[in-house]
């Protein structure tokens, strides 16, 4: 537990260093309003990454989340275009994103197909369905469906208490899921299943249902992320989120969640998504394109994991061990 706190602490320190560094490079960076509003551009990553933390803690992975984002978006658009109340459309779309998660979870829990393969399949399937819905309703792929009512657009573009709504969403969701993971019985079972699914079963924990619910949560995360993106761009597109998978997983792992399961924090994921977003924003202010920034983020991910793997106490032991077992 202490180690995890340390990791989150390290992330916060890194975030502060980041702010100082970019501030020195370009004083405009520290303009508070710009800084806060820049978060709008990447908040959707955090919205999907936070619930994804649950899945990764159970020892799984969900690469279909990007497709769920697009699916949610296009469903909102198509339903609204066909005359449904936009909020009803949102509700239905979120339900469908939860169902998408349930499909993932059920297959993962009841077969022995690896989660990566299952969600790879549903990644194609969900994005395919999104495309079919989009194509079938002859909504052009690139422009998408636009012209949403003002109230809906304000969802992600408005402000409350002087803060942009998406950021409030982000913190709200982060707190909600952090509380659920660390304080509730459900969260505890997610950890136990991730640490040792067999022991969990022998302890009378309903392992399958915990796994299925974790995937449902991750699916819903994709849904919420898709909803915010749709409102933010005030346009519904089936290909929103196609590029989101890798940053989402990066955020979770950078946040300190073990890819092998059993360990992880929601707050870490949240901070990590801000770290990544700030990094992108800062580098962009140093006139790098967003695609170019991925070099830095890639290195960041590898170095972060390397640092986490280095158990400083073990370092001494490693020396003696190295002398003994030298790998061929």
């Amino acid at each position: 537990m202490k180690l995890l706190f340390r990791w989150e602490g390290a992330l916060v320190i890194f975030l502060i260093l980041e702010l100082i560094f970019f501030g020195l490079m370009n004083p405009d960076f520290l303009n508070l309003t710009n800084l806060i509003f820049s978060m709008n551009d990447y908040v959707y990553i955090g919205l999907a990454a936070i619930p994804m933390t649950y899945v990764i803690i159970t020892g799984g992975i969900d690469v279909s989340v990007g497709s769920t984002i697009g699916l949610t978006s296009i469903i909102i658009g198509v339903l609204w275009m066909n005359g449904l109340n936009v909020w009803l459309a949102v509700l239905i779309a979120l339900l469908i994103s939860a169902c998408a998660g349930a499909v993932n979870g059920t297959v993962v829990a009841t077969t022995n197909v690896q989660p990566l393969v299952v969600t790879l399949g549903t990644m194609f399937l969900f994005s395919g369905i999104a495309l079919v819905i989009s194509g079938g309703s002859s909504a052009s792929g690139y422009e998408g469906i636009s012209g949403f009512p003002d109230a809906f657009v304000q969802l992600a573009n408005g402000e409350t208490f002087g803060l942009p709504n998406p950021i409030l969403f982000f913190f709200g969701i982060m707190i909600f899921f952090a509380v659920m993971l660390n304080l509730t019985r459900f969260g505890r079972q997610v950890f136990l299943v991730g640490i040792n699914p067999k022991s969990a079963r022998y302890s009378g924990i309903r392992v399958k249902s915990i796994i299925i619910w974790s995937y449902i949560i991750a699916g819903l995360g994709g849904g919420v992320s898709g909803l915010i993106l749709t409102s933010y761009f005030s346009s519904a597109r089936s290909d929103l989120g196609t590029e989101a998978v890798l940053p989402v997983i990066t955020a979770v792992v950078l946040g300190g969640t073990s890819i092998t399961g059993g360990k992880g924090t929601v707050v870490g994921t949240g901070i990590a998504s801000i770290v990544i977003g700030m990094m992108q924003y800062g580098l962009q202010m140093m006139s790098m394109t967003s695609q170019e920034t991925s070099v830095v983020i890639g290195f960041l991910l590898i170095i972060a994991v390397l640092l986490r793997l280095t158990n400083w106490g073990l370092l001494k032991k490693f020396h003696t061990k190295k002398a003994a077992v030298k790998e061929p």
Binding site: M1, I195, N196, K198, Y202, G262
Partner: peptide, 12 residues
Amino acid sequence: QHGLFSIASLKM
């Protein structure tokens, strides 16, 4: 294999 949650505390 079946009894312990190795990286968890005793109370967990």
